[in-house]
Design a protein around this nucleic acid. Structure first.
Length: 371
DNA sequence: AATCTACCCAACCGCCCTTAT
DNA sequence: GATAAGGGCGGTTGGGTAGAT
């Protein structure tokens, strides 16, 4: 659609607001409410577009704004929320009464990013910065940032659940979706919000499907490249600490994390898996059996076909789920014991403040030898 | 004192989503 | 269903300013 029609109108003021303009806008909205923003400037006697008035009200004139410097508690909240939500400033602002998304965004870009870097934490991934990453490769960081800011390219359904599909980043110089080795070496992470989880009947029993992690899945395929000559490349995920929410910044290289043990496809027709469905289902194909040579896999796998036809569910050995878990146990390894095995991830294994509060759950898929 | 630099932050831009027609 | 408009959001810009040289 492009620009608003009001923006084309001539003789509209731009730039900083004068006290007189503020007074006019404040007075008008206090008396009448804003109603339709496009009509506000005319009714309030302002030479501004409605959009500009709205922004001025929301970011500056609104009476419930807190103003002033952010407290350390607020800064910590923003850091934690950013680890959970990424650059979703409006959602972060919603958790901080009296603060605007613009204000938080500015704070993040001008101050918090720097503070995190000084602490050796990558502000994009909220992971410790490896030496290699620190030795810079701006392009890779830009790519990570871009990936973290990915937006869904389409909606799809898995079972009865609508999910977002993310486009796999493409490397123009390569047939593979992504040049992964750099990411491995960077120990970078891929974050996936719970909104992309596939609910399976209850909010506490959800599985991350292949479709939501196609970006990661492609990475894994490439990370299996034996050219790395490294058997430690794994897809890992960071488990919760005991109870409560876990700040990404609390996680460090000594963090225990689960290694992925088995690939497994669920080939049932509707793409969903009920919570009481036995995982000994013959439709399940052990992907390990298909992998003879990782290099060959890289050449042969047509991931897009799987994306279209085959949801992959990642599960765990959570005791609450006694059906699927029996056959897909995961094991906690220390970071020097990571094995090149793959498997399922269950949402109870991710850190979250509450199983019923999906907005605050987030997966962290990490690629590399250590975190 | 003058100039430069880095930083902050208010505001704008461009796009997306929703709603109305 | 197509189109237009409003509202919302995240990225970016550019003016102001504090601190350094």
């Amino acid at each position: 659609m492009g620009r608003h029609s009001c923006c084309y109108k001539q003789k509209l003021r731009k730039g900083l607001w004068s006290p007189e303009e503020d007074e006019k806008l404040l007075s008008y909205i206090t008396k009448h409410g804003h109603g339709c923003w496009s009509s506000v400037p005319k009714l309030a006697g302002l030479q501004r577009c409605g959009k500009s008035c709205r922004l001025r009200w929301i970011n500056y004139l609104r009476p419930d704004l807190k103003r002033g410097a952010f407290s350390p508690e607020e800064e910590n909240s923003i850091i934690e929320l950013h680890a959970l939500l990424g650059n979703r400033w409006s959602q972060i602002a919603a958790q901080l009464p009296g603060r605007t998304d613009n204000e938080i965004k500015n704070l993040w870009n001008s101050s918090l990013k720097k503070k995190l870097r000084q602490k050796g934490i990558d502000p994009n991934t909220h992971q410790p910065i490896s030496e290699l990453a620190e030795n810079n490769d701006k392009e890779k960081h830009a790519e990570i940032e871009k990936n973290n800011n990915q937006i869904p390219i389409q909606k799809s359904s898995v079972g009865s659940n609508e999910v977002n599909l993310f486009e796999t980043p493409k490397d123009n110089n390569c047939n593979y979706p992504l040049e992964i080795n750099s990411k491995i070496n960077n120990n970078s992470s891929c974050f996936i919000s719970s909104e992309n989880m596939v609910g399976l009947g209850s909010s506490s029993s959800s599985y991350l499907s292949f479709q939501q992690v196609n970006y990661g899945i492609n990475n894994i395929a490439l990370s299996s490249n034996s050219n790395n000559n490294n058997n430690n490349n794994s897809l890992c995920f960071i488990p919760s600490t005991s109870g409560g929410s876990t700040s990404m910044s609390e996680l460090n290289s000594s963090t225990m994390f689960h290694s992925i043990q088995n690939w497994e496809f669920n080939n049932n027709n509707n793409g969903s898996k009920s919570s009481n469905e036995s995982s000994s289902n013959n439709n399940n194909i052990n992907f390990n059996d298909q992998i003879q040579d990782h290099n060959q896999v890289i050449e042969d796998i047509k991931w897009s076909e799987y994306l279209n036809t085959t949801p992959l569910f990642l599960g765990n050995n959570n005791n609450d789920d006694n059906t699927i878990q029996q056959h897909h146990s995961t094991t906690i390894y220390s970071d020097d014991e990571i094995k090149q095995e793959m498997g399922f991830i269950h949402n109870s294994d991710i850190y979250s403040s509450s199983n019923n509060n999906k907005d605050f759950q987030r997966f962290s898929l990490a690629f590399g030898q250590t975190l």
